[in-house]
């Protein structure tokens, strides 16, 4: 275990000293702070507006209860943050995965590590542990910053249920970022050319993060008109479902396209937990997790398979199969 911790410590130290990683991190935090500050300010103005309306009614001698209090869901303010995590979080995973292996391959230190009296999986475990801690630290700081701005700018207080939901989103984010970490690590281990491995990683990122979700959104009939096709046609939910039932095959194909992307599963899961999808607003954690179990399984499966492949790649050592 001591040797795994030694490798993990070095991984953590190396990444926190890497300029590219630090630039990406700064970029993510600037976007997060901006997004959450704007959303919090908007949230605060809605609260002020409601309080003013109640005051006006009171001054007119009417009860404030005649207007129903709007339902504020502070976690919805994280919409922008989730978009950035989907895109930049994945890039951070790719960069960490690339740096973790490329630094050893490029300097021939991988042979040095492998010639040490380490267990079969110690190197893979050390690298995974070090980068896991780093990703968790980043996500924890991201969550704390978000919470602080929501509280200080928006005056929003999170309930225990909302904090629990945020916790599950963090866990899903960890799986999501570490999927890209493990996947890129495997490619860098397998490819002889380091730049080629990085290019393929970004092609996969492009397909998962941008292309597949875009195809799915384009195929969605409800997305053909801003604000939603059915809503603009004043078609109620039950009727909408009835209509869509006639396009079952089309919907199955569209869904299958979306489900092939880890990003889409991560988005569906986090949007449900944060209540960005209105139908999940005010629902319990248990309800959301149960309803979106499919997305949980997929996100965890993508991560689990990539992790297995990383360990397998280290075990096989096929990256050393070259002639002198």
């Amino acid at each position: 275990m001591q040797k795994i911790i030694t490798i993990a410590g070095k991984e953590y130290q190396d990444s926190t000293r890497n300029k590219l990683f630090l630039i990406l991190l700064a970029f993510l935090f600037v976007l997060t702070v901006t997004s959450i500050a704007v959303a919090s300010s908007d949230f605060q103005s809605k609260v002020v507006e409601y309080n003013k309306s109640v005051q006006i009614l009171s001054s007119l001698g009417k009860s404030g209860e005649t207007i129903s209090a709007p339902q504020f869901f502070p976690l919805k303010m994280l919409r922008g943050v989730m978009d950035y995590l989907e895109i930049i979080g994945a890039i951070i995973g790719i960069i960490l995965g690339y740096l973790s292996i490329a630094k050893e391959k490029g300097k021939n230190t991988l042979q040095l590590l492998l010639s040490r009296p380490l267990g079969k999986f110690d190197i893979a475990s050390g690298k995974f542990l070090g980068n896991s801690l780093l990703v968790l630290s980043v996500l924890a700081i991201e969550a704390f910053t978000t919470y602080f701005i929501m509280w200080s700018v928006g005056g929003a207080q999170l309930s225990l249920v909302e904090i629990a939901k945020l916790g599950f989103v963090l866990l899903a984010s960890y799986f999501y970022v570490m999927f890209f970490f493990c996947f890129t690590s495997v490619l860098v281990l397998k490819f002889r050319s380091l730049p080629n491995a990085l290019i393929v990683s970004f092609v996969v990122w492009l397909i998962f993060v941008l292309i597949i979700p875009q195809i799915g959104d384009t195929m969605d009939p409800d997305n053909q008109i801003p604000g939603g096709f059915f809503k603009s046609m004043s078609i109620a939910k039950p009727q909408e479902k009835e209509i869509m039932a006639r396009f079952k095959t089309y919907e199955t194909v569209r869904n299958a396209v979306e489900e092939s992307s880890v990003t889409k599963h991560y988005e569906r899961l986090s949007f449900a937990l944060l209540g960005i999808k209105d139908e999940y607003n005010g629902k319990s954690v248990g309800y959301v997790l149960k309803d979106r179990w499919n997305d949980w399984v997929w996100v965890a499966a993508f991560f689990g398979i990539a992790l297995f492949l990383e360990y397998f790649a280290f075990r096989k050592r096929s990256f050393l199969n070259k002639t002198d």
């Binding site: 030694t6 630094k103 300097k107 230190t109 590590l113």
Partner: peptide, 22 residues
């Protein structure tokens, strides 16, 4: 190994400490 470059951003002591611990 041939042409090993080690960890250039670490000192000689840190490099040796790392491999010694491993």
């Amino acid at each position: 190994p041939e042409n090993v470059k080690f960890y250039e951003d670490l000192t000689a002591f840190e490099n040796l400490e790392f491999f010694a611990k491993l």
